[in-house]
Simulated assay, not measured.
Amino acid sequence: MAANKISLADWQAQMKPEGQTAAVQTDANLVYSTDSGRITSDNTARKPTGEAFSDGAVRIRRETKGRGGKAVLTISGIAKPHDELVQLAARLKKKCACGGAVKDGVIEIQGDKRELVEQFLKAEGFKTKWAGG
């Protein structure tokens, strides 16, 4: 086992090609980094998609907890890819004349515009339910 140990300088010399510094080269065999923890071979960031509920309804929930008392509508249960959720959120924000975002497959709309959001989603062909307060 002791034969496999080498110094850091020797390891860096082995890893860099001729004429290239060690700081420029990336190591495919690196399994741990103090910067970001474990490094996986799949570096593609997966964007979450929405998940549908078993009854097929889209849930419209009004939340204020953890948001400084301000009302935010969360719309969950839309089983579409992230890009389509972003486009739907953009149309919703234009219709409601407010801000919002898509986080973890859930659309967030600022303000309490449940009726307007419900009408819009029904016009888009979704079955809706109000959830929470």
Rank of each mutant, 00 (worst) to 15 (best):
M15D: 03
K65I: 15
G69Y: 08
S41Q: 13
D42V: 04
D27Y: 09
D55P: 01
T26H: 08
I39T: 05
E63Q: 13
S33H: 04
Q25F: 13
A71E: 15
S41I: 06
K65D: 12
S54H: 05
A23G: 05
Q12A: 09
G66H: 01
T74Y: 07
T34L: 14
R67M: 13
R61M: 13
R67S: 09
Q20W: 09
A13E: 12
A71Q: 13
S54T: 10
T40D: 08
G56H: 04
K16Q: 15
S33I: 03
Q20S: 02
N29T: 10
N29G: 04
M15L: 14
E51R: 08
P17C: 06
P17Y: 04
G66E: 11
Q25E: 13
N29D: 14
V58I: 03
D35E: 14
D55M: 07
T21C: 02
D42H: 02
A28M: 03
R59L: 13
Q20H: 06
R62W: 12
E63K: 09
Q14F: 12
G50V: 13
R62M: 14
I75Q: 05
R67G: 02
A57W: 05
K47Q: 10
A57C: 08
M15G: 00
Y32K: 02
V58C: 03
A45D: 07
P17V: 10
P17T: 08
T21F: 06
K65N: 09
R61C: 03
L30Q: 14
T64E: 15
K65G: 03
A13K: 10
G37Q: 04
G50I: 14
D35Q: 13
V31K: 01
T44V: 15
G68T: 07
R46N: 05
L73R: 02
R59Y: 15
Q25C: 11
G37I: 00
Q12D: 06
T64F: 11
Y32A: 01
T74I: 10
D55C: 04
K70Y: 10
K65R: 15
S54Y: 11
K65Y: 14
A28L: 07
V72M: 12
T64Q: 15
G37L: 07
G37C: 07
T40G: 12
G19T: 05
Y32G: 02
I75G: 04
A28H: 06
M15S: 07
A57F: 12
D35L: 15
R38D: 01
G68K: 05
P48C: 02
T74S: 15
A52C: 02
K47G: 00
